[in-house]
Design a protein around this nucleic acid. Structure first.
Ligand SMILES: [Zn+2]
Length: 264
DNA sequence: CATGCCGGGCT
DNA sequence: AGCCCGGCATG
């Protein structure tokens, strides 16, 4: 009964996956590029530029960890009494850049984010090289926990579902680390983008997408998404000019605010 | 430790 | 508005 239900549900995007079964077989390691082509902000209903900022909250030291996605999903399946209507899942886009992990609600927004923030290019889509596609991934989140998980600012558990390039999820197995080898083959990055944007001699080296989309590495509580605010890669006035020469810093840096000269 | 900067204070 | 700093997070 339950097994049958599970198998039939295997196509459901909500499935969190049994630990081993999910990744056991070699995931297809090949560049998935088009597939979804360009959903181009189709999902952001009215929120045009869609900034579902889930990645900014410095206040979650240790959550009491009430019920959790796994068991939640469990009884959610076995409960025909309260079947969720079809749309209990919302698609989001997560940046895979080194320590960014930003999550936005629209693909176009994410592409813009990557273009501007990480590739140092212009914001306009016509400057797109298509390269952005390699730096973000699409993921589905349960929308119900989004709604009430948002109020409590609690960790939102995400379920990545895509042409499985790399699993952004930690497996609940304490001894199982994400296979690091498949990355090397997957993460080819054409280096035809000469960094242009500022006069800074910085060269953004493309990075191997860090396959652990900010989840706490080891906690007894299996799934605790950790909204860690990453620090940008760019050197700011402080480091560039030094503590002396402080008068050369941009205002923001002098006021200990976010630098405005060397944007991330 | 250094760096980046949020939040909040003061003028 | 401008100016400054405590304190925290990040690496
Ligand atoms: Zn600055």
């Amino acid at each position: 009964m339950a097994a049958a239900a599970l198998t039939s549900l295997s196509t459901s995007p909500l499935l969190l996956g049994t630990p081993a079964a999910a990744f056991s077989s070699e995931p297809g390691l090949e560049p998935w590029k088009e597939a979804l082509g360009r959903p181009a902000g189709s999902y952001s209903s009215s929120n045009n530029s869609g900034d579902w900022d889930l990645a900014s909250d410095p206040s979650s030291p240790s959550t009491p960890s009430p019920p959790l996605p796994l068991e939640a999903a469990h009884f959610l399946f076995g409960e025909p009494a309260q079947r969720k209507r079809k749309n209990s899942t919302q698609v989001m886009f997560q940046c895979l850049w080194k320590s960014c992990g930003k999550v936005l609600s629209s693909a176009s927004g994410m592409q813009r984010h990557i273009r501007v923030v990480h590739l140092g290019r212009q914001a306009e889509p016509e400057h797109s090289d298509g390269e952005e596609d390699f730096y973000y991934t699409e993921l589905d989140i349960g929308v119900d926990m989004l709604t009430d998980g948002l109020s409590s600012l609690a960790p939102v558990s995400l379920t990545a579902s895509m042409p499985p390039a790399f699993p952004p999820l930690e497996v609940p197995e304490p001894s199982a680390l994400p296979p690091p080898r498949m990355l090397s083959s997957v993460c080819r990055i054409h280096s035809d983008h000469a960094y242009q944007g500022c006069l800074a001699p910085i060269h953004l080296e493309p990075q191997a997408p860090t396959v652990r989309a900010c989840f706490s590495p080891a906690l007894p509580t299996k799934f605790t998404a950790n909204p860690r605010k990453p620090r940008g890669d760019a050197k700011k006035c402080r480091k560039v000019y030094g503590m002396d020469r402080r008068e050369l810093w941009c205002v923001a840096c002098r006021w200990k605010k976010a630098c405005q000269r060397f944007l991330d």
